[in-house]
């Protein structure tokens, strides 16, 4: 196998040949997690096209079909695989639509965290001095408040300040903002740490000798080299954000009931748990666990695979 033969393979070939792919394909847990995560995400994203029912189409709801158990139970109806809830909505479809909301909130919240975190971390690490001190103290202060507390606080303020209809409309964004704003310090710290290492490397000095501006060095030289750990934390944080959203929705301060997320479904189903209709809450719960667990396992694998010390 000569180097020349492998010099310019196509992108797919390069990927299949990479160390990352190798470590991925040789870890059964990771492959299984990836499949589960793909199924969850795929089901969520494609819900409008592949879900057996549309739980929000009031016209198609049949109250007669309420409280149907899963299909394999004695009273089960094969058209409602995981049963129905109190309004006759298909639980499976509700889960798919709910996961959609959960994931949307999760992705957007992480994106917000990443954006703030990278900006703050790069600036703190590269510029140092007062900028560093101020940004990192803000991050420290932020870390002393639990996420849920901040989210409750923001939600409370928004609720008090805005009329109910308006609040329901923007509730989704409030949740995204609340979760996103509370997670940025972990990104900022990681980016700052890597930036401190990178800024003293000689390639950065070489750019400084040429006279490249600080902003440019931060963006085009330092940033690409600190993204690895960010990707890892982002993956782990996605699971966390989905959970945080579920917690908030479970507490009733999350997304509005007109757009139920997995957390909302669990809360609603919780009311029926002791009257025997367990499927209404258990299945959304299982979906949530599978989604968060698989994403977190993927994040763990990514961290190990990108860590040169463990290679």
């Amino acid at each position: 196998m000569s180097d020349a033969a492998l010099r310019r393979p196509g992108a797919l070939r390069r990927m299949l040949d990479s160390d990352l792919w190798w470590s991925f394909s040789h870890s059964p847990v990771t492959v299984a997690s990836a499949i589960v995560a793909l199924v969850c995400i795929g089901g969520a994203v494609l819900a409008p096209w592949i879900a057996p029912h549309n739980p929000f189409d009031l016209a198609s709801l049949q109250l007669m079909d309420a409280f149907k158990p899963p299909a394999w139970e004695a009273d089960g109806d094969p058209s409602y695989l995981l049963g129905t809830d109190d309004q006759g909505r298909d639980v499976l479809s509700a889960i798919m639509y709910g996961a959609r909301v959960s994931l949307l909130v999760g992705f957007c919240a992480v994106l917000l965290s990443v954006t703030i975190g990278i900006t703050a971390g790069l600036a703190a690490g590269y510029l140092g001095g007062t900028v560093d001190a101020v940004l990192m103290r803000i991050a420290d202060i932020k870390l002393t408040f639990p996420t849920i507390l901040i989210a409750l606080l923001i939600d409370g303020v928004v609720r008090a300040a805005l009329p109910r209809e308006v609040h329901d409309q923007i509730a989704l964004y409030v949740v995204i903002f609340a979760i996103g704003i509370s997670n940025w310090p972990s990104f900022a710290r990681t980016v700052r740490g890597s930036t401190l290492v990178e800024r003293n490397k000689e390639y950065v000095q070489a750019a400084r000798v040429i006279g490249i501006s600080r902003a440019r060095i931060m963006v085009s030289h330092v940033l690409p080299n600190v993204l690895g750990p960010v990707l890892v934390i982002a993956t782990l944080n996605l699971g966390f954000a989905v959970l945080a959203e579920a917690t908030l929705s479970f507490l009733g301060v999350g997304v509005p009931p007109t757009q139920p997320s997995l957390g909302t479904l669990i809360r609603i189903g919780n009311d029926f748990l002791f009257s025997g209709e367990w499927w209404i809450t258990i299945f959304p719960g299982i979906a949530l666990i599978l989604l968060v667990l698989s994403v977190n396992l993927l994040g763990d694998w990514l961290r190990d695979a990108l860590n040169p010390k463990l290679r």
Partner: peptide, 30 residues
């Protein structure tokens, strides 16, 4: 008119850049 060459050949080139871009950086900058 002034340039510098560094000691550590493993740290003096940005690992995420292609060699052509590394060499072209001063050409573009000036």
């Amino acid at each position: 008119r002034m340039q510098m060459i560094f000691q550590d050949p493993y740290a003096s080139l940005n690992p995420r850049w292609r060699v052509a871009d590394i060499i072209a950086e001063p050409i573009r900058a000036f």
